[in-house]
């Protein structure tokens, strides 16, 4: 049996506010298999986004451990964690977080530059550009390559963000309310696209949402309440 691509074991996370310790996650256990779509469902403040950040190595757990492909990431250096984050996971955020100075193509290409030296990137720049263009064409933005984020609609921006998350061919996509900032028609289109791409690439998908209708389309729903998995 293969190891889960992503595992959380008894993860606790708390933040300190002055002298007060505020627990956000309280012993979360989670396993995500390759190619699986998992919906994290919960009300605001339940700890969904915090769990996503901990799973994506953006925030270390206060207690517990995270495993990628069965290997603990505990004790890795900042550089090693960053490399793992780049190679293993892709992020899609509610507010797209595109870099406004860059065109759609450049935003996607940037993901391919993160771990390359100048010389290494220069030697494979044509290949990287071809891959980024193909991805943007795949998400339906073949005619928007040179448009800056300010010239794109919300749905188009999110498609660029999805293409960016997929460029490094990650094992897991972590999506934090990816449709939360879109109207229902656009949101439906974006979700359909994400599910299609997930199937094509057999990547695991962790989707944070508070939309029950969206959650039921996942393979599995994990409900969070006050930092605890309740179902």
């Amino acid at each position: 049996m293969t190891s889960p691509v992503l595992t959380a074991r008894c993860v606790h996370k708390s933040y300190r506010l002055g002298k007060t310790e505020i627990p956000v996650l309280r012993g979360v256990d989670l396993e995500v298999q390759s190619g699986e779509i998992v919906a994290l469902l919960g009300a605001s403040g339940a700890g969904k986004s915090t769990l996503l950040h901990v799973l994506g190595l953006l925030d270390p757990p206060s207690e517990g451990e995270i495993l990628y492909d069965g290997r603990s990431v505990h004790g890795l250096s900042i550089r090693e964690r960053a490399r793992l984050r780049h190679d293993h996971t892709g992020f899609v955020f509610q507010f797209y977080h595109l870099i406004p100075e860059l065109t759609a193509l450049q935003n996607v290409l940037l993901a391919g530059m993160m771990t390359d030296s100048v010389l290494r990137y220069w030697s494979r720049r044509q290949e990287a550009k071809k891959a980024a263009t193909a991805l943007l064409e795949r998400v339906g933005l073949g005619d928007r390559l040179k448009h800056r984020p300010a010239e794109l609609s919300g749905g188009e921006r999110q498609r660029v963000a999805i293409a960016r998350a997929l460029l490094a061919e990650p094992r897991v996509i972590l999506a934090d309310e990816p449709t939360g900032n879109l109207d229902s028609n656009t949101a439906e289109g974006v979700i359909e696209l994400m599910f299609e791409l997930q199937r094509e690439r057999d990547a695991a998908f962790v989707l944070v949402t508070h939309d029950e209708g969206l959650a039921v389309r996942a393979n599995r729903i994990i409900r969070l309440r006050d930092g605890v998995v309740v179902g």
């Binding site: 994506g56 953006l58 900042i78 550089r79 960053a82 490399r83 984050r85 780049h86 190679d87 992020f91 955020f93 977080h97 595109l98 870099i99 940037l110 993901a111 993160m114 771990t115 960016r164 490094a168």
Partner: peptide, 16 residues
Amino acid sequence: TGDIGILTSMGGTPGG
């Protein structure tokens, strides 16, 4: 500062 978050999520480091 908004870009710093997304750079980190893509594999950037504080040194970067």
